[in-house]
């Protein structure tokens, strides 16, 4: 009898042990499989968001007015309609702001944009010493209040040779060519060119003149350094538009500002129409280098919500490639940044 009892206990013990091992293995495997499925689900959602972003890019590429970007373009209608499908699309023009890496001293002073106690000379020296920055914060927080920095500035725009600080252009030249001496000579060349300007009648390098001005380094500098208008009048902050119109030599009447700000939500202007609206000073001054109708850098954010996994956002930053006269009909965008936010 005692033998039979021991056998039962032994078998029960073995079964219990096996059960514990099986259960723990099952729980572990269940966790592993869940983790694998979760990752697969996230990958699928990421791919779906990328497909949505590609649709947005298709609409940019097939814009019926490719040289003017405004809120009446088809892509905005598409973004609005996507909400019905549970997808949020947010488009932001991130280049129609002053370039914190290149804004000229006179514009800084005119807009009264610097922190109290900081001078535009100090900012110029800081930029010269530390080079071109990708992060506005914390790199420029010593010079600008955070609110001003985020409202008026960006690091995402091209360097228009006519409106950039000459030391910033020297820095860019050095970054692109690796030759500090040539970069210094280039800066002096620009300063010499500007010496021929008269008050209210600046000498300017137009797109057609750019290739000859940049010379042998054109291929390394263009299109980062170009002569295209930096801001899109349809999206730029009203305050910047106002500062540019009230600048000493620009002097554009206030009613023009009101007309543009009032009409841009539901109207699109071509560059020719903008010239007519602003008047003679548009072409005679730097205004036509600051203000245009094209957006160069877009931020596209696409968010999908899911009950089980929460929301997932894809953030793309794309850049439109400026065309030189030889390839005028080609519209091309490039993806600069991709990030998923959960």
């Amino acid at each position: 009898m005692r033998d039979n009892g021991s056998t039962t206990v032994l078998i029960l013990g073995v079964l219990g042990f096996l059960s514990i091992i099986t259960l723990s293995t099952y729980l572990f495997l269940e966790y592993s499989i869940k983790e694998i499925y979760r990752n697969e689900a996230i990958e699928q959602r990421k791919n779906a968001l990328i497909n949505e972003a590609e649709k947005v890019m298709d609409l940019f590429l097939n814009d019926v007015t490719p040289y003017a970007d405004s809120r009446i373009d088809a892509v905005w209608e598409h973004a609005k309609n996507s909400e019905d499908r549970g997808i949020q699309i947010r488009l932001t023009d991130i280049s129609s702001y002053y370039g914190v890496n290149w804004i000229r001293k006179e514009m800084l002073n005119h807009g009264n944009l610097l922190k109290f106690g900081k001078s535009s000379d100090e900012l110029q020296q800081y930029r010269w010493d530390t080079g071109i920055h990708l992060n506005m914060e914390p790199d420029y927080l010593d010079f600008f209040p955070p609110v001003i920095l985020n409202r008026y500035f960006t690091t995402y725009n091209f360097f228009n040779i006519n409106i950039c600080d000459e030391f910033a252009l020297e820095n860019l030249y050095f970054v692109r060519t690796g030759d500090r001496d040539k970069a210094r000579l280039f800066r002096q060349k620009i300063q010499d060119f500007w010496k021929g300007s008269k008050p209210g009648k600046p000498r300017m390098i137009e797109p057609a003149d750019l290739k000859s001005f940049l010379g042998l380094e054109y291929a390394r500098l263009y299109p980062l350094m170009n002569a295209e208008p930096v801001f899109n009048v349809h999206f730029m902050p009203e305050e910047i538009l106002s500062q540019l119109f009230t600048y000493e030599y620009h002097s554009v009447p206030h009613n023009v500002l009101e007309f543009l700000v009032g009409g841009r939500m539901n109207q699109e202007w071509s560059i020719g129409e903008l010239e007519v609206i602003i008047g003679d000073n548009y072409k005679k001054t730097f205004l036509h280098h600051y203000i245009g109708v094209t957006t160069w850098f877009w931020q596209i954010e696409i968010t999908s919500s899911n009950d089980e996994h929460g929301s997932l956002t894809l953030r793309w930053i794309v850049v439109r490639v400026p065309q030189d006269s030889e390839r005028e009909d080609e519209i091309e965008y490039r993806l600069l940044e991709e990030e998923f936010l959960q």
Partner: peptide, 25 residues
């Protein structure tokens, strides 16, 4: 497999924080 998934996430996070400015040559 789970360690690989976690490692992949970690590596993607690290490499994803490498942000080349668009002007770099």
């Amino acid at each position: 497999t789970v360690r690989l998934i976690q490692m992949e996430k970690s590596m993607r996070r690290f490499i994803g924080k490498v942000r080349y400015p668009f002007w770099v040559n």
